[in-house]
């Protein structure tokens, strides 16, 4: 059967791709369980002297694990702010025509397109001058620059998929706008909110340039702390790898929690 043959070769193709995709990550994992002596003495495909020492270093040193807490804090703040402001705006863009709507939409998107490097210095000056430098909220606000436009864009797509008859019916039933929005509309676009949250998390979690520039000690993200492994005696590869592995975990957790929403969201053809 040609059909079965084709589906088998497809299965092989995708499997090979995913294996290639995961190899570098496996290598990082592999390194994180090795001692530095083993890493530098030669290439081994799996740890010969399996050790948790590298992880112990991270979990016992507060300057290390506070980096993870800092990163999580500003990512969650950013998610809360972004969703709060983006939901009503996306509703307006999907339902109404108003003065300058298209230009406003493009202006929002153009911020998603602006290179963060352009805003680096003014951000530094702005947050220093209002006394927010080295706080979580500063990073959260700075990340809104690219996350809010993205959220509005994705949510608008999902909301346009909901027929307006639902809105009108709810108003006839005597629902006020805020109540309708929270009680009826938001549950209907659950998947959309899930997908949006996933993307907000992703882009805020992976960004380093702004997060590093806007913090120094108290709110320093883990990504910036990782550069410390480069010491006078060379790079501490083991601890660096372990720290890297730990930055991947939250992402995997998030994608696991929203997997059904993401699958459904993707299935709607709306991202």
């Amino acid at each position: 059967m040609a059909m079965r043959e084709r589906s088998r070769s497809k299965g092989i193709g995708i499997t090979v791709f995913i294996i290639l995709l995961l190899t570098p990550i496996y290598w990082l994992l592999n390194m994180s369980f090795k001692t530095n002596r083993e890493i530098l003495s030669g290439l081994t495909l799996w740890p010969q002297n399996f050790t948790f020492d590298n992880y112990v270093v991270i979990f016992t040193d507060s300057s290390w694990y506070s980096g993870y807490i800092n990163s999580m804090t500003y990512v969650l703040m950013n998610m809360a702010i972004t969703l709060t402001v983006a939901l009503p705006a996306a509703y307006a863009f999907s339902r109404y025509r108003f003065l300058g709507d298209k230009h406003l939409f493009f202006w929002l998107l153009s911020n998603r397109m602006a290179p963060p490097a352009v805003f680096l210095l003014p951000f530094f000056q702005l947050y220093s001058s209002i006394g927010l430098f080295d706080t979580h909220i500063a990073v959260a606000l700075a990340h809104c620059l690219f996350n809010v436009p993205l959220a509005v864009w994705i949510l608008e797509g999902f909301m346009s998929g909901v027929p307006r008859e639902y809105d009108e019916m709810a108003y006839i039933d005597g629902y006020s706008f805020p109540r309708f929005f929270v009680k009826i509309f938001m549950p209907m676009i659950r998947s959309g909110i899930g997908v949006t949250a996933f993307f907000i998390f992703m882009f805020s979690w992976v960004e380093l340039l702004l997060a590093r520039t806007l913090t120094s000690v108290d709110a320093q993200p883990i990504a910036a702390i990782m550069t410390r492994t480069i010491g006078a005696s060379g790079i501490d590869w083991g601890v660096l790898s372990a720290a890297g592995v730990l930055t991947i975990l939250p992402g995997v957790l998030v994608v696991w929690f929203v997997r059904n929403h993401v699958a459904r969201g993707f299935a709607l053809g709306r991202v």
Partner: peptide
């Protein structure tokens, strides 16, 4: 997974 890894 690769999308969720911090860029550095």
């Amino acid at each position: 997974i690769p999308l969720l890894i911090p860029w550095n």
